[in-house]
Structures are given as C-alpha cells and as structure tokens.
C-alpha cells in the first residue's frame, strides 16, 4: 500500500474505524491488491552514496521534470516501505548483469513478489523445498532453554541442505509440468515452452538459521544461505543439460547459447 493511502487508513482507524485488516478502514482504500516496486540503477545508488542531485525524466521524451536530492528520494522510499511495505526495490543493472539470456532482450519486470525475474511474456511454476525437512538431527532444543555449547555442538552436524537428489526430483517434476500447465495468453505459452524457465526454491530459511543458532542478519547466516542456494541452482542446471537429445535444449539461437555461457 502506497504511503498516502497508508496514512488515510491510519487516520480512519484513529477516528474510530476498526483496525481489523478486513474492516472498513482498509476496505475503503483502493489499490491494495497490488505491489508497487521501483527500479533503481547503479547510477542512482552512486548518486545516493555521493549525496548528488537526481533528475527525474519523462518516459516518452526523456525531458527533465524534477531535480531532487537522490539521498532524500532514497530516504522517502525507505520510510514508505517501513510504514506500509511499499515500494519494493529492484536493482536494474544487477538484474540485467546476471541475466542468462542477454542476447534475446533485457529484463524489464518481474511478477508481483519479484522472485521471477525474467524476459517479458514468460511464466514459470514454483516448487519450494522446506529446509527443515532436511535437518539431519532432531530439532528439539535441550530442556531448560538453548545453551550456547549445545547450539555450538549442533552447528557442526545438523547442516540442513536439500540433497542433490531432492533437487533433481523436484526439478524433473517441474520440467514435465511446463508442458502440462495452461498459460494466460498464447505468447506467454509459446515463450514459456521456448525458454522453459523453472522456479525451484526453498522455504523456511529463517527457521533453519534459528535452529542452527546462526543470527539471521550475520555473515555466517548469509554464507549458509549462499551455500545451499548455490547447490540447489547448480544441481538444477546440471540436470537441465542432462536431457539427452540436442533438439531438447531450449530453443534459443546460437547467440543465446553463447550469451548463456558468459
């Protein structure tokens, strides 16, 4: 919900409306069935860091509309997100740097939650593995509350990572589902078959880190997440190439294949 509307909800609640999420205060305010995100470039982030002036421009002619402090704009976006969870942020240069199909087109948009970041008019189905199901040790903590030594001892032997086998099974099932799914438009259907994008993933990372005694916002927590994410994605791509015949690869051109190897 955008800032002004969030403030309107707050005003309605203050004047006696129910603060229930299904109550009248929220019902009377429009635009809640959407997520709004802002795409920022490296150039904008550099302007924020240098406390430089930022120019907003028209989409059609590129004409300068406003000259404002990048840092102030950044602050306003952060405060709005803190108040009402909008806007989300997408890092345009980073997204297009790590894009696997640069030769086809750039990436302009995402789905509303922003996890599927790919070419226009493509869709993918999702499957999330629950990380806690892969814990090797029972998750019960010692009676009397977690002791530091117990957590330390646990850290070494309970590394919960979806097995490569589990990644392969789910990825294969999703691959089959590409041809069984229905798509909202013909173009999305065509391109989803052509590029066959898939969305294997995981859930419950926060719980896993807590069980393993790793702080959520820590370098160790991030290293843990990076390792298991790398395993899941690497194993998926290794399987993606395994389907035997040449004609089975996604029907990109040679230039796509070359760009992919970059």
């Amino acid at each position: 919900m955008e800032g002004a509307r969030g403030e309107k909800v707050a005003a309605l609640i203050a004047s006696g409306y129910s603060s229930d999420f299904n109550g009248d205060a929220y019902r009377t305010v429009s635009g809640q069935n959407a997520n709004n995100s802002v795409r920022v470039t490296d150039r904008f982030i550099e302007a924020v860091m240098k406390d430089a002036v930022w120019e907003t421009t028209t989409r059609t002619t590129g004409e300068v509309v406003e000259r404002i402090s990048a840092r102030q704009l950044w602050r306003e976006m952060a405060e709005a997100a803190w108040k009402c969870a909008d806007p989300g942020l997408q890092f345009d240069d980073t997204i297009n740097k790590w894009h696997t199909c640069k030769a086809t087109d750039r990436i302009y948009a995402s789905n509303p939650c922003s996890e599927f970041v790919f070419l226009d008019d493509t869709a993918c189905n999702l499957a999330s593995l629950n990380l806690l199901k892969f814990l090797r040790e029972p998750t019960a903590l010692p009676a009397g509350g977690p002791k530091a030594e117990a957590l330390e001892a646990r850290r070494g032997d309970s590394t919960s990572t979806p097995t490569k086998h589990a990644c392969r099974i789910f990825f294969l099932a999703q691959e089959i589902a590409v041809d069984l799914a229905s798509y909202p438009t013909q173009r999305i259907a065509e391109r989803s078959h052509q590029f066959r994008p898939l969305g294997l993933g995981y859930a419950n990372l926060g719980t896993l880190l807590m069980v393993e005694g790793l702080p959520y916002d820590s370098d160790a927590g991030r290293a843990r997440a990076a390792s298991l994410t790398a395993i899941m994605t690497g194993e998926a791509y290794a399987l993606s190439r395994r389907w035997p015949s040449r004609r089975d690869r996604f029907r990109g051109t040679r230039s796509i294949a070359r760009a992919c190897s970059r």
Partner: peptide
C-alpha cells in the same frame, strides 16, 4: 555439461 550441449531451461531457481 552446458558448454557441450546447452541447457534445456533458461532459468532454474527462484526464492519466493
């Protein structure tokens, strides 16, 4: 393996 034969899927994982 991909350098030999290409990939069947242009994108593989997401974190919802």
């Amino acid at each position: 393996l991909g350098e030999q034969n290409g990939y069947r899927n242009a994108q593989a994982t997401v974190l919802a």
